[in-house]
């Protein structure tokens, strides 16, 4: 069998970049509010529906992409200000239960409004691989995904390391009470974390859906499961961990799918997750104390 190693690696990296972006969205909320946002997938799906309709109305994919970002940000803001802010922080399960409730509300609303059928979403670039000679290398769409996620990572890195608000967000994530005493508006940083996270999550889901069956109210469910695993493997506190683990798991899953079949991919994910939880439960890139905090 002639195995297109380069193509698999490129596709895996692109897939992993999407996992990384979505995992980063989970990490952003965890750092901002110490909440594992189980509603991230459903919220991202809402953004994709907005993008789908904007693209359909205007015929312009890029307007749809912008709409996904904006609607994601607005939804994140609304969810934090309207729901999560009122959740009892002393009980870690409270936010999880509310998030699961939010999943039910959002997916049911989408199903009622738009039906449960899969709707094909166009990709802005071809998914057929570029060939160099007889060798399939990578598809233009995978290149596009890698470029978008790279720009996104760079923008977030600049935000967190080169701006005052980034410094305040990091401080608030590490020690909210101390941050307050130093003049940080911790509640605002929390809202900003949710807003950014939901925008990033929406973008990541928009990138993955053209490679899957299409858009339906549960379109981002599997992405959430993979990205959640990535976030745990990398360390819920670690943006770098999300990126590295995302890329690695994307490549591993692609190769497992190619060589062993798609049914083995979920098994591989569980094996990776169990292995990391057994050996380094705080995640590969997170400090032990950070996870406990």
């Amino acid at each position: 069998m002639d195995v297109p190693i380069l193509l698999l690696a490129g596709t895996g990296l692109a897939r992993g970049a999407i996992f990384a972006a979505f995992a980063l969205a989970l990490v952003l909320i965890w750092r901002a509010a110490r909440i594992a946002n189980f509603a991230q997938g459903a919220m991202a799906t809402v953004s994709c529906y907005v993008a789908f309709h904007v693209t359909a109305l205007t015929g312009n994919y890029w307007l749809g992409l912008a709409a996904a970002l904006v609607s994601g940000a607005v939804l994140g803001w609304v969810v934090e200000r309207g729901v999560m802010r009122f959740v009892d922080r002393s009980n870690p399960l409270a936010a999880v239960i509310v998030a699961i409730g939010l999943v039910m509300v959002l997916t049911s609303t989408l199903a009622i409004a738009f039906g449960a059928d899969y709707r094909p979403m166009p990709a802005p670039f071809p998914r057929e691989p570029i060939r160099i000679g007889d060798v399939a290398v990578i598809s233009p769409y995978s290149l596009f995904v890698l470029a978008v996620v790279a720009v996104l990572m760079l923008a977030l890195a600049l935000l967190f390391t080169r701006t005052g608000v980034g410094l305040a967000m990091r401080a608030a994530a590490f020690a909210p009470e101390v941050s307050r005493l130093n003049g940080v508006r911790v509640d605002r940083m929390r809202t900003l974390g949710w807003t950014l996270s939901a925008a990033v999550g929406g973008l990541a889901a928009l990138l993955v859906i053209p490679t899957e069956l299409g858009l339906n109210p549960h379109a981002a469910d599997l992405l959430f499961v993979y990205a959640f695993t990535v976030a745990i493997v990398g360390g819920l506190d670690s943006p770098v961990g999300a990126v590295v683990a995302g890329l690695a798991i994307g490549v591993i899953l692609t190769f497992v799918t190619a060589f062993a079949g798609a049914t083995f991919a979920p098994i591989a994910i569980v094996v990776i997750l169990l292995g990391v939880l057994l050996v380094r439960p705080q995640g590969l890139f997170a400090a032990r104390e950070a996870r406990v905090a």
């Binding site: 410094l167 990091r170 941050s179 003049g183």
Partner: peptide, 20 residues
């Protein structure tokens, strides 16, 4: 009360957050 993930300089800079 120091921020563990920030450098010493960033920890001190955090004391100026109100003016950011």
């Amino acid at each position: 009360g120091l921020f563990p993930g920030l450098t010493v300089r960033q920890n001190v800079m955090a004391g100026l957050s109100h003016g950011a």
